[in-house]
Every structure is written in C-alpha cells, then in structure tokens.
Amino acid sequence: MAAGGDHGSPDSYRSPLASRYASPEMCFVFSDRYKFRTWRQLWLWLAEAEQTLGLPITDEQIQEMKSNLENIDFKMAAEEEKRLRHDVMAHVHTFGHCCPKAAGIIHLGATSCYVGDNTDLIILRNALDLLLPKLARVISRLADFAKERASLPTLGFTHFQPAQLTTVGKRCCLWIQDLCMDLQNLKRVRDDLRFRGVKGTTGTQASFLQLFEGDDHKVEQLDKMVTEKAGFKRAFIITGQTYTRKVDIEVLSVLASLGASVHKICTDIRLLANLKEMEEPFEKQQIGSSAMPYKRNPMRSERCCSLARHLMTLVMDPLQTASVQWFERTLDDSANRRICLAEAFLTADTILNTLQNISEGLVVYPKVIERRIRQELPFMATENIIMAMVKAGGSRQDCHEKIRVLSQQAASVVKQEGGDNDLIERIQVDAYFSPIHSQLDHLLDPSSFTGRASQQVQRFLEEEVYPLLKPYESVMKVKAELCL
C-alpha cells in the first residue's frame, strides 16, 4: 500500500493539533497551500530580480507567473513527485505547466533550498508574528487579574506546605514575570531571523556568478533584492546548502521555554482548584465526569500541561538535527523538520489560546482563602504575639514557653481530632496574655502579614508589564474561544 493518505478522510490519521486544537490561522501558515504558494512567490521574486539585473526574462513571463501564483494543481504535483521522487522539481514542473512561456526560467540558477529553506524562514517569521500578540493578550488578562487582587491576602506555599502570606495578585505576578520573559525572547528570536537568500547549491553562489558572467556586484544585488522582497532586513552571508540548523534550535528553545512557563502556571491553577481557592472557567453544560456528576475538573489547565510537556520535548529534535548536518548538509534534517517545526508552533498556539481562555474567566473564592488563612495564621502570628507581650512588660522566655504549650495543644486538636485551630481562643482565655487581649485582632490582621506584596504588584505592572504590552494595544480586544 502506498504511503500517505487522504487526510480529510475519517479513515486516515490526522494530527489532533490540526484537527482538534490549533487555530485556523496557525494551521494555514503550515498548510501545503501556504507552503507551495510561497515557493511560487519566491520563484517570481527571483525572476523579477534577475530581470532587473539584466537576464533575458520578459515582462510577459513575469506576468504569467504572477497570474498563476494561486493556480496550484495539487493532484498534478503529487503525481509528479511520485514520478520524480523530488518535491521541488515536482512543483517546478507543475508551475511550468500553467506558465508555459515562463517554464524555462522558473528556478533559474537556484537549488531546492532556495524555495525550501527560504519558505521555512518566512513561515517561522509569520508563525512567530501570530504567537506574539496571543502571548501579549494572556499577559494582559493576567495583569488585569493581578491588579484587581493585588491586596487580597492568601496563604503562600513553599514545598506545598503553608508559608508566609502573600497576595493573590502577587502570586499571579510570578506567572506574568515568566511570560514577559517569554514574550521578550519570542520577539528577540523573531527579529534575529535572517533570510537564507540566493546562495546556490553549497552556499557559494557559483551558479549565479556564472549567470551574471562573473559580476560579483550583481550577485550581491540579486541576494539583497530577493531578501528585501521577502520582507527581511538581512540575509546570511555564510550558508551551506541550507541555512544553519542552529536557527531551528533557537526558535524551538524559546517555544519550549514558553511551554515550561505555561505548565507551571496551569499546575498552580490545578492545585488551587483542589484547594477550592480558584477555578478555571466551567461552562453551564460542561460535564466533569461521566460517573461523578459533582466533579469540576480543571480540564483546560490539564490540557495545557499535557501539550506543554510535548512542546518542551520537541527542542531535542533540532538539537540532534543540527549535530548531524555533515559538511554542507545531509538530508537527516528533512523529514524531522517537516514534523517538529509545525508541531512546535501548533502546540504553542494551542496552549496560548487555551491559557487566554482560562485567564479571561478565572474565578476566585475569597471566603475559602480566608478560612485557610484562619487555619494557619495563628501559628504564624506567634512571633508577633511574643513581641507584643514583651512590649507590655512580659518575659520573652516565659511567653515563648506559654505559646509553645498552647500551640501544641491547638495542633493536637487540628491533627488528632480534625478540629479547627483554636490557638487564639486559648490565648484569649489565658490570664497571662490579658495585657494584649485587646491587640489580638490587630495582630491577626492578614494584611499585616503580606509585606509589600501589593506595592510590588503595582510597581511591576507599571514599570515592566504595561510598557512591554504597549506595541500590542491594537490587538488586545480579541477574545479566545474554545470549541473543545
């Protein structure tokens, strides 16, 4: 049975990233139509530049190519590739079939990587351009969430054990800070992308030097003109047959890092959902379990974690691919890159769409948070109580021993009897502590235990987050809708 299948058929496997999760716009960027249309555009740009620099290419040939950029006979191309065992030459023939007058000058002087690699770089750039505003929107939604809850005390956790208090907004800023680093890295790697350009079979530009009869300047002009037509500021000066596969490492490393950030955020949300302090959106008709109707599973956060793990592992592909590119190139890269580049971007696209949807509907339960604080705060307040007693004339050592005994009794009630923490009640009825009984409410005010959390939130948002989001103001209103 021949390899390949009808990918629109229910009898043929289709990647869930495309069929179930990723956005239509990201799927289109990695589609065959987008790819092969870009090949034709690159052939047109090459012909236009070659004509401008004096090669015998007519206006009629150029116009014929322009008129057929979208006229792609995919069936013919597939048949040609089956016959020739070469995808680029299959599309040269297919393009030439609908451009008979231009057929002889299509791909003039070029090698397969002229269309293959340059198209990949265009796709990487455009895919990054799709991700950047999506990530900015996630940051914006979380920034709104953090600002609104900047002063809401909550129990902090280290080692997932109760620690000092923080605020809900401050905790959210930990998430935002990681995503801001990801946004900066995505922008950097996007701006650092260079075009492969017009380089020939081993990167020496020998074929173009021959076409222009040894004119170095025209060869350099050709490279520059096509690079500018493709919208790049610069091209690699040095290439082998391909652009260095280190570029793929750079791009997928940034995406993998984004995956790590999203995994951490969504894990926190899942843990908070278990504590009943916070939940992701839950639709009115949504079913959490087929057997347990009360369940409210954090399905979206779980999906993000599941896909983020996949995204983090994909960076190993370009690392290994770059390491086995012998001399000017081997074909070890080809099949692998067809999979890992598309999957990385479709996965990143999915987790950003999902995280935006989550961040637009996060639900906080202040009463649950308050109750958990009441359970733990008495123990945390013991040092403040000791200091207040010393100020009232008591002995630190005597007070410490009193607190120690009462704390152990209260802990026994919590752990052995399943009761509430009654340390404060014990202190309130103990005559030894009568000098500070009137101060206990103040000493137990949760806001006095959150330090500068709310001020940190305000400063972080104003100095770091809002300036970073400013270039994306025009796209901030787009909502994230999930079908599944």
Rank of each mutant, 00 (worst) to 15 (best):
A150C: 13
R37G: 11
L124A: 10
G259N: 00
I123Y: 00
R125I: 05
P24F: 15
V198N: 09
Q285S: 13
E250W: 08
T227I: 05
Y243N: 09
A22H: 09
S31K: 06
H86N: 00
E343H: 12
R37L: 15
A342N: 09
D223N: 10
T111L: 00
G197L: 01
F36T: 15
A322Y: 13
G169A: 03
R171D: 00
S395Q: 15
D191M: 11
P56C: 09
I358H: 03
Q439Y: 06
A410P: 02
S261F: 00
L211R: 03
C27G: 12
H97Y: 14
Y365I: 06
P435M: 06
L468D: 05
F212G: 06
K82A: 12
A273E: 11
S9W: 15
R85D: 00
C266F: 08
D6Y: 10
A388S: 08
I72S: 07
Q164M: 14
D223T: 07
L69H: 09
A47F: 01
L314G: 09
V405Y: 12
H310T: 09
V324K: 04
Q285C: 13
V251M: 08
V92T: 13
G214P: 06
D120R: 05
G214C: 10
L443I: 15
R374G: 09
I369Q: 08
E64S: 14
V478I: 10
E60Q: 13
V429D: 13
S434R: 13
K147M: 13
D87W: 04
V251P: 03
F95Q: 06
D248R: 04
R196V: 08
M316T: 14
C266W: 03
D248G: 02
S438F: 09
G288S: 07
E370A: 09
C180H: 09
M292V: 01
K276C: 05
L142Y: 08
L69N: 07
A78T: 13
H159S: 03
C266T: 09
L461T: 03
A163L: 02
Y466D: 14
Q286N: 02
F433C: 07
A103T: 13
F160Y: 13
S323T: 05
H437G: 07
E302W: 02
D192N: 10
D215A: 14
S261D: 05
T158C: 01
T166Y: 01
L135C: 07
V364G: 03
E370Y: 12
L135K: 07
L377M: 03
A431N: 14
D398K: 13
S151D: 11
S23A: 11
A230E: 04
Y432Q: 08
K264S: 06
T158F: 01
Q41M: 14
A308W: 03
L255M: 13
L211T: 15
D192L: 09
